[in-house]
Computed example of a mutant assay.
Amino acid sequence: MTAPTLPATMTVWRQDRFGSAAEVAARTVPVTAPAAGQVLVRMEAVSINSGDIHLMHGSPRMVRLFFGLRRPRVRGRGMDLAGVVVAVGPGVAALAVGDRVVGAGTETLAEYAVVPASRLTRLPDDVDPADAACLPVAGNTAVTALAGRELRGSRVLVVGAGGGVGTLTVQLAAARGAEVWATCGARAEETLSALGAARTVDYRTVPVGDLPREHFDLVVDIAGLTPLPVLRARLRAGGVVALVGGEGGAVLGPIPRLVRSLFARRRGRRFRPVTATTKSEVTAELVDLLSRGILTPVIQRRVPLSDAATALAHVEEGHTVGKVVVLA
């Protein structure tokens, strides 16, 4: 396919200092040509993750050691993407101009983004790019949280199941034969039941500590607010708590809690911190499940790129059911 003629400039959403969504603004910048091993992607859809909000805030403050002490080192927001390859850098053989792709990069809240080809996978023509864009970060996290367990016939508790990671975790666990219980806000209960949760629990009226003791083979803790002994007490012998999320303090965030979890094992009941990386082969598997109707991303709101700050602000509020997707 002949490479399309590219515009000289594009819109990208960036921030000059850490802060709320009000600090992120549309900028006009030159379109950058891909270097070796990279491709240029024309965005079709970008989903917003909680990680985007943490980077926007520069919180916890320890992350600023890696992402900029006084101001963001990478000023553009966005990680997930689905779009079309419009230019290919030297050494890229796996992708070509015109390929529809999905994956993860940086500064994807833009009309175009330069992305390493290794972080992308082809997207079938019959898959909605908005649905696909929900998969890379949240989907890889869900897969990692469930890894290493035989789920058929087991009972899984997902704590804080209403967001992007939670809604995918519930579906993946149910598809693999688990009986899934999900704690969430009341507004997400109907959605999670439709996605395969055998039982949903409104965390505002029934805290995790009121759920049956020694009842679950796996607890996936996304909310990160329940004391570790309370989570451990819900496990059967040999069970595992997968620690996905956690807010913690302003400086160190969830790190103290993760350190405590290393010493909180009792009678074979243990904790496993989840550090998810976005792998193109895992994303490809998730896309296959999506195309076969086994996964259905929950999209609460679709927002045009011209209003991307509103999408960030909505996720920043912390009450999103599923995902918010920005359409370019």
Rank of each mutant, 00 (worst) to 15 (best):
T205E: 14
P207I: 08
P207R: 05
V208C: 07
V208A: 04
L211K: 09
P212Q: 07
R213D: 15
H215G: 11
F216N: 01
D217V: 09
D217L: 06
D217A: 06
L218I: 03
L218F: 08
L218V: 00
V219A: 07
V219K: 11
V220R: 06
D221Q: 02
D221S: 00
D221R: 10
I222Y: 00
A223M: 05
A223E: 14
A223Q: 12
A223H: 05
T226C: 09
L228C: 09
L228K: 06
L228M: 05
P229T: 01
L231S: 02
R232D: 12
R232I: 04
R234C: 07
R234W: 06
R236Y: 03
A237W: 15
G238D: 10
G239L: 07
G239A: 09
G239V: 03
G239R: 11
V240E: 13
A242M: 04
A242C: 05
A242N: 07
A242W: 01
L243N: 01
L243D: 07
V244K: 03
V244Q: 03
V244C: 07
G246A: 11
G246K: 10
E247C: 01
E247F: 13
G248I: 00
A250Y: 10
A250S: 14
G253A: 03
P254A: 06
I255R: 13
I255L: 15
P256D: 04
R257T: 10
L258C: 09
V259G: 06
S261D: 12
F263L: 15
R265G: 15
R265I: 11
R267Q: 14
R269I: 03
R269M: 06
R269F: 08
R270Q: 07
R270A: 14
R270C: 12
P273V: 09
V274R: 12
V274F: 06
A276C: 02
T277L: 14
T277S: 15
T278F: 04
S280T: 09
E281W: 11
E281Q: 14
E281D: 15
V282Y: 00
V282R: 08
T283Y: 05
T283D: 02
